[in-house]
Every structure is written in structure tokens, then in C-alpha cells.
């Protein structure tokens, strides 16, 4: 099983760089073969990937955390990285903007090789929202302004202020822009962090569990905001998630990880109870509710 899968990953990786379109077709084929899921979303050709992760390996001390990861994300697309705790989801995300240095492999952003760029240059192209955000005694406005840091020289320019103001308005933070962020609720803080990543004007957005520790209402609110940003700014987005149903609802493609490897990659219709069972080790039913797949644990 493992051999077969890694072979498939390998071939799909090779194809991906030459013909992204073909890769996608071949990929779908794989899963039809594996899980017998028909595809109905592939009438229009997918855009070529903007962010390309190629052959990434990551080791923490001697333990190998990521093994030959290859994945591409297109503009306007949300890729959800799924898998159990400790499988390397966050590690993969951090490798994508080189917060963690992969042992081998390259990360390409279009023609740019991120692996060879400085942290500041990467930050001009890739926005990142960490899972844990500390709240210092800074105002919402200044916290968002911090997102302009990669672009700011010695002085903040009018251009920076304009971008920040517009983003604050877009995220509905105008009323609280002079409040200190250590007085905000979890959902509000998450919105500030997302807004900060947006003012970096990135073409790629990386989100590490954007909904963790939020209530249901705030989860929906923040994911709607993310979806909105992705659609309007046309950014390629990758987010790690624990909640499968929220992921299914808001993401376009799904990358399931197991033991530091890619176990499966599919779109909404490709998510099957079999994949989830293999990855998470529990029995589930995938049912359709209002044409939306829902994962329900059995027993």
C-alpha cells in the first residue's frame, strides 16, 4: 500500500511540473481507482499552481517529520492540510515560508525560488498566521500596520496607511481600531492576525489552524472571512485544520497526511470514509447534507 502510494505521489509530482493539468487528471484517476469516487467538479481546467512544494523533507533532530512532500496550490484556491495530531501539518506549513528550513526540496512561488530568498523578501510574498498569537499592549491599528513591516523602510508611508485602513475596514475592525489587542476576544484577535497577513499583500496565505479555540459562530465568521479574502485577492491559500466538516465546507482541495507523508490529495468529492479511516484510525460515515459532504464518526 505504501509503495503504491509513494509511487503514485512520485509520478504525480513529475507530471505536476510539466503539465499541471495532466497532473490533476491523473490524480483524479488515481482516486477513482482507489476509492471509486466519481468526479463532477472537473469540467473547467484548474489553474497552474502558484506555490509549488517539491520533494520537501524535514527532520527534527534525527526524527524525520516530513517525507518527500510535493504539492501545488493555485491562485484563488484553498488547500486544507488534514491529519491527526503530530503528523507534520504545521511543520509542512512552516516549511512553505521557510520559517522552518527543509532538509531538502524546493519551494517555488511562480518563478521565485523561496528557498533562496531572505526572510524579508519571502514575507513580501507569503502571509502567515500562526496558531498561537501573543497579544501585546498594542492597538488593533498598529498590530495590523505591523503586517507592512516587510515593506517598511525607516518610515511608514501614506501608501502603507492606506492599505492598512482599507484592510481594517474590510475586516470590520474600524470600530475597534484603537483598542488594545490584549483586550480583544479570541475571534477578534484572529481577525486582526488575518488582517495583518493581508496587508503584507501576499500572493500566498498560510494559516495554521485558524479556527482553533474559537466557538462555532467565530469559526464560521473567520472561515467566511478567509474565503472572502481568497476569492477577492486571488491568493493561493493553505491552511491546517482539525475540523473536517469545516474544512469540507470552505476548502477546495484536501491533503491528508499520515506519518509525515502525503496519504491522499483530492477535492471535495474525493473525500471518502476510507481515507479518513486510514488517516485518523476511526470509522466514519461521509454523508451528504444539502449537497455538502459531512463526516460523521460511527459508534
Amino acid at each position: 500500500m505504501t509503495d503504491k502510494l509513494s509511487h503514485e505521489e512520485h509520478s504525480h509530482d513529475e507530471e505536476m511540473h510539466i503539465h499541471p493539468h495532466v497532473h490533476s487528471e491523473g490524480y483524479v484517476h488515481t482516486h477513482e481507482h482507489l476509492h471509486g469516487v466519481p468526479h463532477d467538479h472537473h469540467t473547467d481546467a484548474p489553474a497552474p499552481a502558484l506555490l509549488n512544494v517539491d520533494g520537501v523533507n524535514f527532520e527534527y533532530k534525527t526524527a524525520r517529520v516530513l517525507n518527500e512532500i510535493c504539492v501545488g496550490v493555485a491562485r484563488g484556491e484553498i488547500l486544507a492540510i488534514l491529519g491527526p495530531n503530530g503528523v507534520g501539518k504545521s511543520t509542512l506549513l512552516k516549511c512553505m515560508n521557510l520559517i522552518l528550513q527543509p532538509k531538502t526540496g524546493t519551494i517555488m512561488l511562480g518563478e521565485l525560488n523561496l528557498t533562496k530568498m531572505s526572510g524579508n523578501e519571502i514575507a513580501k510574498n507569503v502571509g502567515y498566521v500562526a496558531q498561537r498569537n501573543d497579544s501585546a499592549r498594542m492597538t488593533v491599528f498598529d498590530s495590523v500596520l505591523l503586517g507592512r513591516k516587510p515593506h517598511i523602510g525607516w518610515r511608514v508611508t501614506d501608501h502603507d496607511y492606506t492599505i492598512v485602513e482599507n484592510a481594517i475596514e474590510q475586516f470590520g475592525l474600524t470600530d475597534m481600531q484603537l483598542r488594545y489587542i490584549d483586550e480583544l476576544s479570541g475571534g477578534e484577535l484572529q481577525r486582526v492576525c488575518l488582517c495583518r497577513a493581508i496587508v503584507q499583500e501576499p500572493s500566498v496565505l498560510l494559516l495554521d489552524e485558524p479556527t482553533s479555540s474559537l466557538d462555532l459562530c467565530r469559526q464560521m465568521e473567520i472561515l467566511r472571512a478567509i474565503r472572502n479574502v481568497v476569492d477577492h485577492h486571488d491568493v493561493a491559500t493553505v491552511m491546517t485544520m482539525h475540523d473536517l466538516n469545516l474544512a469540507l465546507r470552505f476548502a477546495d482541495r484536501f491533503l491528508f497526511m499520515k506519518n509525515g507523508r502525503i496519504y491522499a490529495m483530492c477535492d471535495k468529492s474525493g473525500v471518502t470514509s476510507q481515507i479518513i479511516e486510514d488517516v485518523y484510525g476511526i470509522k466514519v460515515d461521509v454523508i451528504l447534507h444539502n449537497e455538502m459532504p459531512i463526516v460523521v464518526p460511527c459508534g
Binding site: K94, I99, A123, V129, D134, A136, K149, D208
Partner: peptide, 13 residues
């Protein structure tokens, strides 16, 4: 101050 990972994401060494 905003968090170590956030800082790295903003290009700070």
C-alpha cells in the same frame, strides 16, 4: 511581541 512564529513569518530573523 506578536509571537515568535508571527515574527518569523514577517521576515524577522
Amino acid at each position: 511581541d506578536a509571537g515568535e512564529e508571527t515574527a518569523k513569518g514577517l521576515g524577522v530573523n
